[in-house]
């Protein structure tokens, strides 16, 4: 009797709580990513395409200060050769100095240089975008996520869902549209279905055919968005492949060890009378 009353009370509380929780969520579709799951690895060709999209489109507004040209040739990354990374770096002019005369000078980029930023400082960037700052993209794929309710959230622990960042970025890049009736936009605002508050200062960056793909991959907005999101995931988590590979070895080791420890325990305790 008391138990039933308790259960009903608990169910009523839970019901009203989950009703409120359901009101807030924006739905974001999950995308298939090659780097998801326990054996996930980056798709080199995809990272290379993603790098092109980043370089030709995003890098005109966004910085990526934590990534260096040498990283492009690092194991577990886009798989550029050392020579390719060098060539990519050399295309950039880097401000360096002071030299021994005390003067700043320009030189060609080297592999040890970090990706140069489009604006000299934050104020300059904000001035371009009406006060909004295009965020640095180095760790953006880990700095964004997807809200999952409690049950889904718990499930994510078992399904190893860690791709909320790229899912969000993909949805953001492909989420532009007309504002619903009654919503006013200022001239610099754009309607986006997943951006918090829906009014973003980033103009839709991608259009079909904008970046040339040489490997036959369709040159569409959604393909660009997918590729650049994967690239951003790599930029944020460059050691993901090593992590998952070592993780598997550690798991096997621990499971075998647990088995041995279990039988040792069984044997030792069996002697006990």
């Amino acid at each position: 009797m008391r138990k039933t009353a308790l259960l009903i009370a608990a169910a009523a509380l839970l019901g009203s709580v989950s009703a409120q929780a359901a009101e807030q969520a924006i739905h974001i579709d999950r995308q298939p990513w090659s780097f998801a799951g326990p054996f996930g690895t980056y798709d080199r060709a995809q990272l290379q395409r993603g790098y092109r999209v980043y370089k030709e489109v995003c890098s005109t507004c966004h910085s990526m200060k934590l990534v260096a040209f040498r990283n492009l040739a690092q194991p577990g990354g886009p798989g550029f050769t050392e020579a390719q990374a060098k060539t990519v770096a050399a295309e950039y002019k880097i401000n360096d100095g002071p030299n021994d005369k005390g003067e700043m000078f320009e030189r060609a980029g080297r592999v040890t240089d970090y990706f140069p930023s489009p604006d000299p400082n934050e104020q300059a960037a904000r001035a371009r975008f009406n006060g909004s700052l295009p965020p640095d993209l180095s760790v953006i794929a880990k700095a964004r996520g997807v809200e999952s309710g409690v049950l889904r959230g718990i499930l994510n622990m078992f399904t190893q869902y860690q791709e909320g960042g790229p899912d969000y970025i993909y949805a953001y890049l492909t989420g532009y549209g007309k504002p619903p009736a009654g919503e006013e936009l200022t001239p610099t605002q754009h309607w986006n279905s997943v951006f918090p508050g829906h009014k973003t200062q980033m103009p839709p960056p991608l259009t079909d055919g904008q970046v040339e793909y040489t490997d036959g991959t369709p040159a569409t907005v959604s393909q660009y968005a997918r590729d650049v999101s994967a690239f951003l995931m790599w930029a944020a988590e460059p050691h993901l492949e090593a992590r998952k590979r070592i993780g598997f070895q550690v798991m096997i080791f621990l499971i075998v060890l647990a088995g041995l420890a279990y039988y040792t325990k069984k044997k030792v305790w069996a002697d006990l009378h």
Partner: peptide, 15 residues
């Protein structure tokens, strides 16, 4: 550590 290292963290802490 190896499979869901950021599961318990908050994305905002990468800003």
């Amino acid at each position: 550590v190896f499979y869901i290292p950021n599961y318990l963290g908050h994305p905002d802490n990468y800003i």
